[in-house]
Design a protein around this nucleic acid. Structure first.
Length: 774
DNA sequence: ATTCCCTGCTTACCT
DNA sequence: ACAGGTAAGCAGGGAATT
């Protein structure tokens, strides 16, 4: 029989009482298919340098008992960091291979590879069966279990370029709360579970025993039978809580296909057999554009309606007791937002999974470094590369990008010239890869005296090969996009593909300098940044020689007078002489620099305001000061008079002095970056976190603490209160005038000659500063 | 006793 | 746990000043 289906996961299952690979898939109507491959053998390699084949067989025979019959040993040639080695490939049943690698790790220790990669992942990579792709499967022994068609794999072929099937999605959110701080699954019942299937919101509220509502969730899952279950904080919070509640009944959470239970797999990730489990919190955590990692930010980014009022988890129990309707309304907004955001991210998730080979429910759980690594592993084995082990290394830094001191003040017509993918281009051009770096300058080596390493030119590195392929694939897609309708399904998918390829290319440099990387290269990463610095310095020299005035530069960009002829000449020189591509990134009609690097504000040609690095973009400044800075710098760049700017400032001060500001705009947000006991000094957010901890809240790394400064004496940390406990009567309004608003405005007005004294005197409520008369 | 200055810790940004 | 470079506030201590 032949099935045309879309694969979304591979897992270890069983067939006739033996372990087998299960390939979960659906057809274009969303019907489930499970294809079983009983023939895949797990394996690992052991380097022949560390053991003879006779000794290897002897150890295995002695230690494996009956399982030895299930093992096969073959001599193979593979590469390790580009160098050919003879390996013994030990393959067989999953259990036997696991036992064999355990035994050899103990007896030999060194030279064992790929025993640390899951068989289901090896299957994806070796068979080239990429998740989130379409395949034609030939199967036999077809049966049906529940509503899943099950067949045994005969063979399969990929089908290129089909749009994804419409997946059924169920979003889930919960109401957890406790009278005493953090809800504890030991004592606190689940107050509510809310689901959304795209049409109906179902809310199941506590009425007696919470086991009933957890069962209702299970019923909901089997009724909707979703391909995807999506939530916010599912892996770290919701699934652990629900499973913990059910432990009292000695049962698991039955939400998988074919009676599967949710179970914890790698690193806190929960796996739901036969369904894709997506946690959107893991997506926002990885993206710096989300400052506070909230669902509201994500929803705003996806251009969705925001809730009328957001309710913090600290207040869930209060609302549950006092204003339950409002709470439920908010959680109903959440499940809809979760559902709709998933719909907006669907293409990205599936494309990322398809390209990296990571199953879709794991792509966000894997860090961006690991995502890149899966891709290298996949491409590497096509070149015969064995995947190196993750090893413990000492952390070392090396010099990075070059940053110029800006010319402070207001400038007109400034162009930003930057290098197109500077680091990836350098890695390709100079063949930088862990295995191409050498210490000696002898032979076919491009040597860099300044840092004492060279690069071999007689072999091509794996990383540059991969980068070239990423860029070539991306360019192909981009040229196809030109002839497509941007609103078409095809366009959106291809656009998602090219974005993912770009992300992977841009990650490779950082990946290579990361001590956790399997393909780590301190020397390689150092050469990349060295060449980056050399490139930018040479460009600066050339720009000066051409007569261009340089205002600023950072790593791969230079800010110069917008003189199009000279700039074109510079760009041509860069291409001819350095062999790299530079371009005009943008042009500022006006741009303001302070004395500081990495901080500026500009008005672009199309009239938009761009603020970089200044208080306005920082979450650890209160919204009121941030907004004031934005308004005033916008006016400044658009040519407002000094009087106008001072008037604006005066108004901002006045509103604070009259306590007319919504206290939510006074919250300062800071992240907890380590266990509270590890902090060496006192600070407001830590003190507030400690008091929350006293009330029973579990303060974890990564949480955000919002606080407000109250009146009183002594250091700030003694006057900070959690924002849920702030009272306008106790707030230190002066702190917000002198330590929030004033510095944010001084920063942008002092470079244009409005002195701090002037602003301070306005802040004090005076008319104009005394220095105006001096 | 108060102010000033410096250093270390800490956070969050930029490319 | 992709990289390094950078600004800036607060705490806390000691020196300098009142």
């Amino acid at each position: 029989m032949e099935w045309i289906v879309w694969v979304y996961d591979t897992a270890i299952g069983e067939y006739k009482n033996r372990e087998a690979i299960w390939i979960w898939s659906i057809d274009s109507n969303g019907e489930y298919y499970l294809i079983i491959d009983p023939n895949f053998r797990d394996y690992f390699y052991i380097d022949s340098k560390y053991i003879s084949i006779r000794k290897l067989n002897q150890i295995l025979r002695m230690e494996l008992g009956n399982l030895y019959r299930d093992i096969e040993v073959n001599e193979v040639t593979r590469r390790l960091y580009g160098v050919e080695h003879i390996f013994y490939k030990v393959s067989g049943g999953f259990e036997a291979v696991k036992k064999a690698s355990d035994v050899l790790s103990k007896k030999v220790g060194e030279g064992i590879y790929e025993d640390d990669i899951r068989p289901s992942q090896k299957y994806i990579m070796d068979m080239n069966l990429n998740p989130c792709g379409w395949y034609r499967f030939k199967v036999s022994n077809v049966t049906t279990i529940d509503n899943v068609s099950v067949g045994v794999l005969e063979e399969f072929t990929p089908i290129e370029e089909r749009p994804y099937p419409e997946v059924r999605v169920l979003s889930v959110d919960v109401i957890l709360g406790s009278r005493y701080g953090e809800p504890d699954p030991e004592y606190d019942q689940v107050l509510g579970i809310v689901t959304y299937d795209g049409e109906n919101v179902n809310n199941y509220l506590l009425d007696g025993n919470d086991y009933n509502i957890i069962r209702l969730l299970e019923t909901d899952v089997s009724r909707v039978d979703p391909h995807v279950i999506v939530g916010f904080e599912l892996n770290q919070y919701i699934w652990p809580y629900l499973t913990e509640r059910l432990k009292k009944l000695r049962r698991g959470l039955k939400i998988g296909k074919i009676g599967g239970e949710a179970h914890q797999s790698v690193l806190g990730h929960f796996s739901v057999g036969g369904r894709v489990n997506i946690d959107l919190k893991e997506y926002v955590d990885d993206l710096p554009i989300f400052q506070r990692k909230t669902l509201e930010e994500l929803a705003g980014y996806m251009k969705m309606d925001l809730p009328e009022y957001a309710i913090d988890k600290y207040l869930y129990y209060d609302y549950w007791s006092r204003d339950r309707e409002k709470l439920i309304k908010y959680v109903e907004w959440r499940v809809k937002a979760i559902y709709n955001t998933f719909k907006g991210l669907e293409d990205h998730i599936f494309v990322l999974s398809n390209i990296t080979g990571i199953p879709p429910d794991y792509v966000f759980t894997a860090s961006s470094g690991r995502q890149a690594e899966y891709y290298i592993m996949k491409i590497g084995r096509r070149h015969g590369e064995v995947t190196p082990k993750v090893s413990l290394r000492r952390y070392r830094t090396y010099p990075g990008g070059l940053v110029l001191n800006p010319k402070p003040g207001l400038h007109d017509n400034i162009a930003v010239i930057d290098y197109k993918s500077m680091y990836p281009s350098i890695m390709i051009k100079y063949n930088i890869s862990p295995e191409t770096i050498v210490k000696s300058s002898e032979g076919n080596v491009v040597y860099f005296d300044e840092i004492g390493y060279g690069v071999r030119s007689d072999i091509r590195g794996l990383i540059p090969t991969i980068l070239e392929e990423l860029i070539r694939r991306r360019d192909e897609i981009r040229s196809r996009l030109k002839s497509l309708d941007p609103s078409s399904r095809e366009y959106k998918l291809l656009d998602a593909r090219q974005r993912v390829l770009k992300i992977l290319a841009n990650t490779m440099y950082g990946y290579m300098g990361w001590i956790g990387a399997r393909w780590y290269s301190y020397e390689g990463a150092s050469i990349v940044t060295y060449l980056g610095r050399r490139t930018i310095s040479l460009s600066i020299d050339k720009a000066k020689e051409l007569g261009l005035n340089i205002i600023y530069g950072d790593t791969d960009s230079i800010f110069v007078d917008y003189n199009i002829d000279l700039i074109n000449e510079l760009i041509k020189w860069v291409s001819d002489t350095l062999g790299l591509e530079a371009k005009i990134d943008k042009v500022f009609k006006k741009i303001l620099f302070t004395e500081a690097k990495k901080r500026y504000a500009g008005l672009t040609e199309d009239g938009s305001i761009e603020i970089v690095g200044l208080e306005y973009v920082r979450r650890d400044w209160c919204d009121y000061a941030r907004e004031a800075q934005y308004v005033i710098v916008k006016n400044l760049l658009e040519g407002a008079s000094k009087d106008k700017l001072l008037d604006l400032f005066r108004d901002f001060v006045r509103r604070l002095r009259r306590k007319e500001v919504d206290i939510r705009k006074l919250i300062i947000w800071e992240q907890i970056t380590r266990p509270l006991s590890e902090y060496k000094v006192n600070a407001p957010h830590i003190e507030v976190a400690k008091s929350l901890s006293q009330e029973g809240w579990r303060i974890k790394k990564g949480m955000f603490i919002g606080y407000i400064i109250n009146k009183g004496s002594g250091p700030l940390y003694k006057r900070a209160v959690h924002y849920t406990k702030a009272d306008p009567n106790y707030i230190d309004w002066d702190y917000y005038i002198y330590n929030q608003l004033l510095p944010a405005i001084v920063r942008i007005l002092s470079p244009v000659g409005i002195s701090e004294k002037t602003l301070e005197s306005i802040a004090r409520g005076g008319g104009v500063g005394l220095d105006m008369f001096v």
